[in-house]
């Protein structure tokens, strides 16, 4: 139903919709309009538009090198597209640095994990709350009342996230010593600690075994369910994508070749061709 390329033609732009499992999805939270991103001569993204709705789990899929991570980097401000507009919460976003995007309530994880390896799990997750801490530099330096109270409050929130993601046993462990699967989980915890409006996950399950994948899927669903967090995620495992996501954008060679519910996407000929490796013309 909505494989159109421009959001203006998108029949769902106004209200929102109800998912098959009965969750209410709201209006547009983030909208990418005609994004084009080049690296020198290489076009990583070519004229792509799509939206992400309030409360939705939105997947971005596609073969290797399709431009998925690049798209996430555009959303989070790490890459600046040559063309196109980014709209967030109904406003066109001026060019922003990644830290400014983060302060707008957009948190992310990285495909190759970017944690503070020398810091403990607890400290890593605490950094996620930096944007929410209000006391000024002098108060902090003198450890005046507000700074101390703030630290305690934020510690409590972080402990809740630690419980939620079941990583109590490694709270004090330096992140550098953790196995890969747990690192991925800590990175998710740090992103969650920011209480984001929009959570971006770049291959949250890559390199995990089946059991770890199941855990991670459950966490993602729970985050969306309990906190109402909007999530955009990149994932290669089709089974996982079909289970988790409400709508899917499919990219191939920097272009959008499909956009719709998992069922729609699965039956889309262009998508099938891309995944079966049918030659491009």
């Amino acid at each position: 139903m909505n494989l159109q390329d421009t959001p203006q033609d998108n029949p769902m732009t106004a209200e929102g919709y109800t998912t098959p499992d009965g969750r209410k999805i709201g209006g547009v939270l983030m909208e990418m309009r005609n994004i084009t991103l080049r690296f020198g001569g290489v076009k990583a993204i070519t004229d792509i538009s799509f939206d992400i709705r309030e409360g939705e789990i939105r997947a971005i899929i596609g073969p290797n090198g399709a431009g998925k991570s690049s798209m996430l980097n555009v959303i989070s401000g790490f890459y600046v597209p040559q063309e196109g507009e980014v709209w967030f919460r109904g406003r066109k976003r001026p060019p922003m640095k990644p830290y400014q995007v983060a302060r707008q309530g957009i948190a992310r994880t990285f495909q190759n994990i970017a944690l503070f390896e020398g810091m403990s799990v607890l400290d890593n997750i605490m950094t996620g709350r930096l944007t929410l801490m209000k006391s000024g530099i002098l108060q902090q330096a003198m450890w005046w009342g507000r700074a101390e109270r703030e630290e305690t409050e934020h510690r409590e929130k972080v402990e809740k996230i630690i419980d939620f993601l079941e990583i109590q046993h490694i709270r004090k462990t330096p992140v550098g010593r953790l196995p890969y699967g747990l690192k991925k989980r800590v990175e998710l915890a740090r992103a969650l600690a920011a209480e984001p409006r929009l959570l971006l996950l770049d291959e949250p399950m890559a390199g995990m075994n089946v059991e770890e994948k199941e855990d991670m899927s459950r966490f993602i669903l729970d985050v969306n369910d309990e906190f109402g967090t909007t999530i955009a995620l990149i994932e290669h495992d089709m089974g996982v994508v079909m289970d988790l996501s409400d709508r899917v954008v499919v990219m191939d060679y920097g272009k959008k070749i499909g956009d719709g519910t998992p069922d729609e996407v699965r039956n889309n000929q262009a998508v099938i061709d891309a995944y079966l490796g049918v030659a491009h013309d």
Partner: peptide, 9 residues
């Protein structure tokens, strides 16, 4: 990179 992603200038 990680520092930027948590909103540190």
């Amino acid at each position: 990179q990680a520092a930027l992603s948590v909103g540190i200038s």
